[in-house]
Design a protein around this nucleic acid. Structure first.
Length: 317
DNA sequence: CATACCGGGCGGTTTAATGC
DNA sequence: GCATTAAACCGCCCGGTATG
């Protein structure tokens, strides 16, 4: 999802609500890129729940799951929509905020976040020193006042010098040292006491496609999270040969299946790798479900936009 | 030789901090 | 106080290397 699509998708959700409430649609609504999907989803919801008495758009409220709340047979049903123009929507793949592992209390006690860890290691300082081993930066970069921006532009410049030995070495060195920093951090995390209940909740939320910082921190501590998820349905749409295909999923059933299979959850730290895995435990056997990578999204490793890159390890099983 | 694994990468918006 | 700028945050896409 690029540029303006979050706003666009929210508009589409509101269109679905309008249709369900038999409210008139504007010409703007009909121009919405996902209008067809909205119509199909609304139709399907009406078929699935013939006794709807109320429909509300929940939008950016993060204290609940789902995008839309309907009341059907005086029961609250949460509905989430995921629309895709491709044939097959991709699995749960997410980049979430860098400190999510500690901010969501997956560990017990006062645990250092990844960002705090880096601060203590003077990450920015040593990166700056490394970058300054190159002494031919253009004026336009040298005169940048903000140290962060200058650091980033220097790294960007070095990355652009494809054939320059020195620049390659510098970035490689930063990459290597940053990698060590990540491994050291995981070494520290790996000996901390884990909160299995929170790990389970974290897994459930990520699996449900809840990725934003606020949504995660709000929902993960919610008392009746598992009960609410029982009433959550996800409607997926895809396009095949110009036609919109709909799939409805009972999130509760899916979650029940997984957490029913694994009575306990844990985080495992493979030796020598910059990721950890969320795993389910059954009969003392640990089965990896999610892979959580310490990662820098922009320019080069160690330079800009740290995040957690998450991969779903269950898609092919 | 295709595919999976393990990261690596980009272009943007929103919110907070700072300068005037 | 307001305007500007930096920092934080957001979601999707790409590719080298090992492996079967």
């Amino acid at each position: 999802m690029g540029k303006y699509e979050r706003q666009l998708i929210e508009d589409t959700e509101k269109i679905i609500v309008k249709i369900l409430n038999s409210e008139p649609l504007t010409s703007n609504d009909k121009k919405n890129r996902w209008f067809n999907h909205a119509v199909q989803i609304a139709k399907q919801i009406n078929r699935d729940f013939p006794n709807i008495s109320s429909v509300k758009h929940l939008g950016n409220r993060y204290d609940n799951t789902g995008d839309i709340l309907i009341i059907s047979n005086s029961k609250g049903i949460f509905i989430e929509v995921k629309m895709s123009e491709t044939k097959l929507g991709v699995g749960t793949k997410a980049n979430i905020s860098q400190d999510a592992l500690t901010e969501n209390h997956l560990f017990i006690g006062k645990i250092k976040s990844w960002s705090t860890w880096r601060e203590e290691k003077n990450h920015n300082k040593w990166v700056k020193a490394s970058l300054n081993k190159f002494n031919r930066y253009p004026q336009r970069i040298l005169k940048i006042g903000n140290s962060t921006t200058q650091r980033e532009e220097k790294a960007r410049y070095l990355r652009g010098l494809k054939r320059n030995r020195k620049s390659k070495d510098i970035l490689k060195n930063i990459h290597n040292r940053d990698r060590k920093e990540k491994l050291d951090y995981f070494k520290y995390l790996s000996v901390q006491k884990q909160d299995r209940e929170m790990i389970k909740r974290f897994f459930v939320l990520i699996t449900l496609g809840i990725h934003t910082k606020e949504a995660l921190t709000d929902l993960i501590k919610k008392k009746d999270l598992f009960r609410e998820v029982q009433n959550l349905y996800i409607y997926y749409t895809n396009c095949r040969k110009g036609k919109v295909i709909i799939k409805k999923e009972n999130a509760g059933k899916r979650i029940n299946r997984i957490i029913g299979k694994y009575p306990k959850f844990e985080i495992i730290f493979p030796k020598g790798l910059t990721h950890c895995k969320i795993a389910g435990i059954k009969d003392n056997i640990s089965k990896p479900l999610l892979q959580v990578v310490l990662h820098w999204k922009n320019i080069a490793q160690g330079i800009k936009t740290p995040c957690l890159n998450i991969f779903d390890l269950t898609v092919n099983s």
